[in-house]
Every structure is written in C-alpha cells, then in structure tokens.
Design a binder for these strands. Structure first.
Lengths: 107, 107
DNA sequence: TTGACACATAAGCATTTGCTTATGTATTAT
DNA sequence: ATAATACATAAGCAAATGCTTATGTGTCAA
C-alpha cells in the first residue's frame, strides 16, 4: 500500500481548480459553507467534500457559529509547497535577467 | 464539459510524488528514460507515461540522442504555480516576524 | 538485412476522484 | 416538542488516474 504523506496531500488538494478558488476566497477571511456553495455550480455536499479534503491536508480550519460552520485558511500550511517550487525560482530569475540562456544550450 | 487549462495541468502534474521526484532529478540536468526508470520501482512504460504528463503540462522537454531520449526540465513553467502560492507568502512571513497573530484572532 | 536496444503507445484493470441524490446530526426558531 | 435550517456523511456512479503486460516504432550494431 502507498503511504500518504501530509505534504503529498497538500499538493493533491491544490491540484483541483475548485479547491484553489476556495482557498483564494478564504484568503479574504472566513466563509460559511452556503456562501461558498453560492459561488460555484455545485451542490452543498460537493462543497463539503472539497472542504474536507482541504481540512485533511491541513490547509483550512473550521469552527461552529450557531448552526453555521465557518472555514478559514491556514496559509502557512502552503509553505512546504512554496519551498518546493522555490527550489526552481533561481532558474526563471536568471532567465529574466537575461543571463540564463546557457541552461537552454548546456549540453 | 470542463475546460482543461495548462495552468491546471501543471498543478495536476506536480500532484504526483513520482513526477515531483522526476522534476527534482531533472533539475540536475538531462536524464535518459532508462536511467530514470532505474531510480523508481516502476516499469518503463509507467515512467514514459509520467513523462508524457509532465510534457503535456509544459514542465519538461525532450530530444533524441541516438536511440535514447533525453528529458530536460523547463523550470520557468513552474512560475505560475510559484506565483499562486506566493500570494500567501506574506501570511507566514508575517507570522515568522511574530506580528501576525492578529489573523488568528481576527473575528 | 536482421536482430537488439531504447522508448512510445495501446489495452486492460483496480483504485481514486468528483459529482450526484439520499439521509443523518446539531442548532435555532416557533 | 416540532419544524426548519445548516451542514456532514453515506451510497452510488461515471470518469480519471496509475499501474501492468503486450505491442508498436525508430535507431544502432553485426
């Protein structure tokens, strides 16, 4: 069987465009589920399932407020992803400076 | 039907741990397919399929060399991902400075 | 030219994913 | 207490994913 690492869960979680859009909305502040549903062509259970994936990946938190449930982002949990992609940042930074063509031609 | 954007393909491509590991290897330079196969517990067709996904996402290039085929990374294609994750960078940077607790408590 | 090599592609299959329509579970309103 | 609201969870299903074992296709070697 395959081991599921949390870091892997994060990458998988943001692979879905709906979930990325949800994170973008949550970056503005807390949202209740029904308000999120109203932003997508999707039923409420579908949204709840996306939120569960995000929660299991550690990318969001939730709290009760009466009979509503408010989700908030945990943006620091995106740092492992930023770190991984950041490994490659130097490549396009060099390219933007125009002194990185050697990589294209090396070998 | 759902439209498949290239940016979405990139996120999906790096969702798989094998493909991320391949990209990490390719960041050292060009690799031939069989050498990549030797690094994973996987058949050659499986690796070729991973490489195809990476190629369709624009994350790698390939060229023939005799009867071998050499793959190289196109790291600048990761920039859209870096940009998206980078939107959230300020959150954990603020947190590291210790002056970002307000976000935890706001509302 | 014939065979071996390096790789891609096809076909098949089990698992996962993303959605739907029920249905369950708190919480609030009456 | 009862009904309505807000959401989660279960079950079912089509499509996508990741792998496998054939089987192509192009290149080199004999």
């Amino acid at each position: 069987m395959k081991s599921k690492t949390p870091i892997n869960d994060s990458f998988r979680a943001i692979a879905d465009p709906t979930r990325r859009a949800v994170l973008d909305l949550l970056s503005e502040g807390e949202w209740k589920v029904n308000d999120l549903v109203g932003r997508f062509r999707m039923t409420q259970p579908a949204m709840s399932q996306h939120l569960r994936v995000l929660k299991q990946a550690g990318l969001v938190n939730s709290r009760r407020a009466g009979r509503e449930r408010l989700y908030r982002i945990r943006p620091d949990q995106l740092k492992p992803i930023a770190d991984w992609v950041g490994q490659y940042e130097r490549f396009w930074k060099r390219k933007l400076r125009g002194l990185g063509e050697f990589l294209e031609k090396e070998k």
